[in-house]
Design a protein around this nucleic acid. Structure first.
Lengths: 158, 158
DNA sequence: CGTAATTATCAGGAAACCTGTTGGTCGCAG
DNA sequence: CTGCGACCAACAGGTTTCCTGATAATTACG
C-alpha cells in the first residue's frame, strides 16, 4: 500500500492537463485513501467502512438509506457495508419506533473503541496532508471544498 | 445516480466534525464521481476507466505498472482495468522494444474519439463544481490540492 | 555470474458497486 | 376508508474494482 506516485501528474509542464481540478481532487482522495487503508488494515476495516463509522459517531441513529444518500451510493450498496459492519459487531440496528419501516443504526461500544483507537493516526494523516499549508490556507481550502460539494449536491434538473 | 446529499455534512454546526478536511475531500470526490458515472454511463465506461484514458491521452505509451502507480492501486488491479479497456478496443498494447518485459499502452482511435465525445460534459461538470469560486480562488484551490497530493505522495519512512 | 528488482500474468477471493424485484409501512388525496 | 405513490429494507444475481499470493521473463547491478 501507499503506492508512491512517482510518474505523478504535474511534472510535465506541458499543455493543459485537461480535467485539472476534477483530476487533482481524485488524486488527493486516492492518496489519502491509500494511507487510510494502510493504517486501518490491522483493524480489518476499509477506509470506506471507517468513514461510515465516523458519520455514525457524529450522527447516531441514521438509517441505512440516509447513510447511503450521505455517501452518494445506492441503498443496496450501503446495505452490503452495513451487513459487513453488523456481522463484525461494530454497529447495531433496531426498528425505529416512530417509523416501523426504518432501521436505526448505532455504534456499539466496540465500534466506538475502534474509532477512538485510530483518531490519533487520522489526525496525523490529515496533518501530513496539510503540512504545506498555513492555517489560513487550510481554512480557505476547507471553505472552497465545501462550496464545491454544495455545487455538486444541489439538485440539478428533475 | 447523482444521489443528492440531503442529510449532508455541514448543517450541524456542532462540535468538531472530526476528520474535517479528509472527509470533505472524500465527499467532493464522491459527488464528482457520481456525476461522472452518470455522464459516462451511455458510453459504457466507468469514471475510473475514463480517468485512466485521460491519463493515457496526456502521456501516451505508459506501461500498466506506471499507470498503476499513478493511480495508487496495485499492478494487478490496474491489469483488470487494462484488459477490460483492451477488450473494448479503446486501447492497444505492444511490447516495449527497449524493455521487453514491459507492455506500452496507447489509445486507439476509438478511445480517442470516446474521450473527445465527453470533453464538453466534463468541462461543464468541472465548471459546475467550481461555480461558487472566483478565478483566483480556483487557482488557489488547485495549488492547495497539489500541495496536499505532494505531501501524501512523498515517501515517508521506509 | 547470480541475486535483486521490475513487469506482466494467473488463480482465487473479498469488497463495493450496480439493476431489478418484492413486501411492508406510511402519507395523502380521493 | 380505500387506494396510490413514496419510502425503506431485503433478496437475487451480476460486474467492476480492488486485494494477496505465486510464477515467469527480463533487466539491473553487485
Amino acid at each position: 500500500m501507499v503506492r508512491t506516485a512517482e510518474d505523478s501528474v504535474g511534472s510535465t509542464g506541458v499543455a493543459a492537463a485537461r480535467p485539472s481540478l476534477l483530476y487533482v481532487v481524485k488524486q488527493v482522495e486516492l492518496a489519502a485513501r491509500s494511507h487510510m487503508d494502510e493504517v486501518l488494515k490491522p483493524a480489518g476495516i476499509t477506509a470506506l467502512q471507517y468513514t461510515a463509522l465516523t458519520v455514525l459517531r457524529r450522527r447516531d441513529g441514521l438509517s441505512s438509506a440516509q447513510l447511503a444518500r450521505n455517501s452518494f451510493v445506492t441503498a443496496q450498496s450501503m446495505a452490503d457495508m452495513i451487513t459487513a459492519l453488523e456481522r463484525r459487531g461494530l454497529i447495531t440496528r433496531r426498528r425505529d419506533p416512530e417509523n416501523r419501516r426504518a432501521m436505526l443504526i448505532s455504534l456499539t461500544d466496540e465500534g466506538r473503541e475502534l474509532l477512538a483507537a485510530h483518531d490519533a493516526a487520522m489526525d496525523a494523516l490529515e496533518e501530513r496532508m496539510l503540512s504545506g499549508l498555513t492555517a489560513r490556507q487550510r481554512r480557505d481550502l476547507e471553505s472552497y471544498l465545501n462550496r464545491c460539494r454544495t455545487a455538486l449536491s444541489d439538485v440539478p434538473p428533475h
